[in-house]
Design a protein around this nucleic acid. Structure first.
Lengths: 234, 234
DNA sequence: CGATGCCAGCTTGCATGGAAGCTGGCGCGC
DNA sequence: GCGCGCCAGCTTCCATGCAAGCTGGCATCG
């Protein structure tokens, strides 16, 4: 989760430049709402806070804009993007499609790989069950995130990983907000186990269907929740 | 296809800045291989060619890097990314997943919408059939592109549109290269018609399945072709 | 009192300069 | 002949300056 590096291809790890520092700092600030959605800051101000000049902040802002986290308004500053329920609908539709595909591919891997991945996924799922028993929601959320991250990563598609990372970043705040409102944590655990079973059985079609269904159900639980709460932007 | 604007959200159309000019020029140069894959240019050189200073070129390069079209090598210049067969495999897997989802959603729209979209898709498909009869491959390719573009756009998911745009840009050169080698143009037309039929019948599951199958077949026709030709990067 | 025009201040867009890092080739030592 | 180190040149990184654009408030006019 906490992969420090810049958005480089993946090989050459370098000492991060100021641009990378600015990128990481701004992204972190957005993630834990130090920069609240709707907040508008000047590049100068952020540069001052980070102890650098405007240039690296500006370039980091371009990258963040490309990922949909901020908008750079010409001559007005950097606007932290808010997420509306409609955005969550879009995000879930993408997740539903990609994660189904990822699960299918994982279930088509050779026996040894599937066993290893199944074990990792099962470990994360057990961590979820334990966290739930303890009533530890943050731990539940982290284990859930690791489960899905593992599923995507093991499908071995760099573009898919990147896309999922991007939209996961976009929806992170919304997920944190709604975590404590969700009533169906046990359903998630059960569904995860079904996904794992399909992978272990080398059943690509089944894995695809289970992963899809899991995300569809989560979407159908979450969206009405957002609407009911009238969270227009978060 | 030729949406002129910058990567703005979608509303405020502005007079393009120099950065936007540089972005558009470089993207166009990459599309029609004026910048061949593997080519490495200095920002200074490109800036000179475009009649501007290094700054806007640099910022445009950051955006292009974020989209996977180039890599900015620290202190070495801008490298035009090549596409390997493995990349095409990744790209197709994403397309397979997203386009199936898009077709499903379109097939779930109200009757009036479906009729309108079905007509548009049918028109593009007829254009393909006619181009094929004339032996006009470029026209076939453009009509095919319009069909898929329409399908995605009408699903009404901005993030999905953007993702597809990005990976379509990445694979554009490969598509152009292989267009004349493909033997199964008529299969595409037939499959398009099946997708349209499912949409008109308000059959989301069928539309999903047909769209998936269409892309899976295309992938399975294309990838061996690339391997056989030994096109390691294009 | 309301509307309009203007201006000051703040913000970024873009250019440019200084400095540091990387590459490749040349010369020296062995 | 071979390998190593060094240096020159090229390239980006980052800071900063200048100018233009936008906003909001104030004064002025109807």
């Amino acid at each position: 989760m906490a992969r420090a590096g810049p958005a480089r291809g993946g090989d050459g790890e370098k000492r991060p430049s100021l641009v990378d520092d600015a990128y990481a700092a701004m992204k972190r600030a957005i993630r834990n709402s130090d920069f609240a959605p709707g907040y508008q800051a000047s590049e100068q101000e952020i540069a001052l806070r980070l102890g650098m000049s405007r240039t690296p902040v500006h370039e980091a802002a371009i990258r963040l804009q490309e990922e949909g986290l901020v908008r750079v308004l010409p001559r007005r500053g950097i606007l932290i993007c808010a997420i509306a329920p409609e955005d969550m609908r879009e995000i879930y539709d993408v997740i539903i499609a990609l994660e189904g595909q990822a699960a299918e591919r994982v279930a088509g891997l050779p026996e040894a790989e599937r066993a290893r991945i199944g074990a990792a996924l099962a470990a994360h799922t057990e961590a979820m069950a334990e966290a739930q028993a303890r009533g530890d929601l943050p731990a539940w959320g982290e284990a859930d995130e690791r489960f899905h991250q593992t599923l995507i990563e093991q499908a071995g598609n760099g573009r898919m990983i990147r896309i999922m990372q991007t939209i996961t970043d976009q929806s992170h705040r919304a997920r944190m907000l709604t975590l404590r409102l969700r009533q169906e944590l046990d359903a998630s655990v059960a569904e995860h186990r079904r996904i794992i079973a399909a992978i272990r059985d080398a059943d690509p079609a089944g894995a695809h269907r289970q992963a899809r269904q899991h995300r569809i159900r989560a979407r159908d639980a979450l969206l009405p929740l957002l609407e009911r709460l009238g969270l227009r932007h978060l």
